[in-house]
Amino acid sequence: MSVGSSLSTDSSPLWAFLLCSAFSVRTLVQGEVLVIGSNLPIIAAPGDDVILPCHLEPLFDVRGLTVEWSQPDLKPDPSDRLSRVEYVHLYRDRKEVPDMKLASYFRRTELFMDDLKHGNISLKILNVSEEDSGRYRCFIPKLRSSVKAAIVQLVVDPNFAKTSTTETLLDPAILQTPDPRDTTSGNAGRSRVSAVIVVVAFISVAALAAYFCLRRKQNKYPNDGIQSQP
């Protein structure tokens, strides 16, 4: 037996193990539920109501989990002897926990409760001010995933033209993972299929017509193309 064939035979179990491991890792990553925020900053004018977008992908029901919204750059209050963690918004045990909220956000924040089952954990902040500018972190501590949190940047600029579309552009219905029962994409797909069928049918008819014309010509002039013998 040659050295090359010996190495090939001996390494077969190793290659099989590596391939199986790679497949398992890929399957795990593809099957994970990820927390996704916004890559672009959310810009608003003072007094606007804004929505900080954050959702889970693929669709995942978070009603039974804890959802934390906090400001990671906020320095702890030195007067708080208990060093309590205070949140912009805290959802736990299927309800809001106002006792652990920062006082400046009291009665100013809310989640879209009906959309939690779709994995939409976007936060709505009412009547924002320049003091609200900064980074916000949405976090699901008990989510079995390598990506449990996302960061959203809020910029409150007095020079930004106040508009009623700030909230509309960030409508949670747009951010929400599409409902599998939604037939919009299906209708579009059927339209494309119909167009392809029409084109194929047209080409088939044209080819068939050309074939019959050729056969008719051959039947009419059977000796065309045949040279006479000397």
Rank of each mutant, 00 (worst) to 15 (best):
Met100Thr: 04
Lys101Gln: 07
Lys101Trp: 04
Lys101Phe: 06
Lys101Tyr: 05
Ala103Pro: 11
Ser104Arg: 14
Tyr105Thr: 01
Arg107Gly: 02
Arg107Lys: 07
Arg107Gln: 09
Arg108Ala: 04
Arg108Gly: 00
Arg108Pro: 02
Thr109Ser: 02
Thr109Ile: 00
Thr109Glu: 04
Glu110Gln: 03
Phe112Met: 00
Asp114Phe: 02
Leu116Cys: 00
Leu116His: 01
Lys117Thr: 05
Lys117Arg: 11
His118Phe: 12
His118Cys: 08
His118Trp: 05
Gly119Asn: 04
Asn120Arg: 01
Ser122Lys: 00
Ser122Gly: 03
Leu123Lys: 03
Lys124Trp: 03
Leu126Thr: 08
Val128Gly: 03
Ser129Arg: 12
Glu130Asp: 08
Gly134Glu: 06
Arg135Gln: 14
Phe139Arg: 12
Ile140Tyr: 02
Ile140Val: 10
Pro141Glu: 05
Leu143Tyr: 02
Leu143Met: 09
Arg144Tyr: 11
Val147His: 06
Val147Trp: 12
Lys148Gly: 02
Lys148Gln: 13
Ala149Gln: 15
Ala150His: 02
Ile151Lys: 07
Val152Leu: 10
Gln153Pro: 09
Val155Gly: 13
Val156Arg: 09
Val156Ala: 07
Asn159Lys: 12
Asn159Ser: 14
Ala161Leu: 15
Ala161Asn: 12
Ala161Trp: 10
Ala161Cys: 10
Thr163Leu: 06
Ser164Asp: 14
Thr165Asn: 09
Thr166His: 02
Thr168His: 12
Leu169Val: 09
Asp171Trp: 05
Pro172Tyr: 01
Ala173Tyr: 07
Ile174Tyr: 15
Ile174Phe: 14
Leu175His: 15
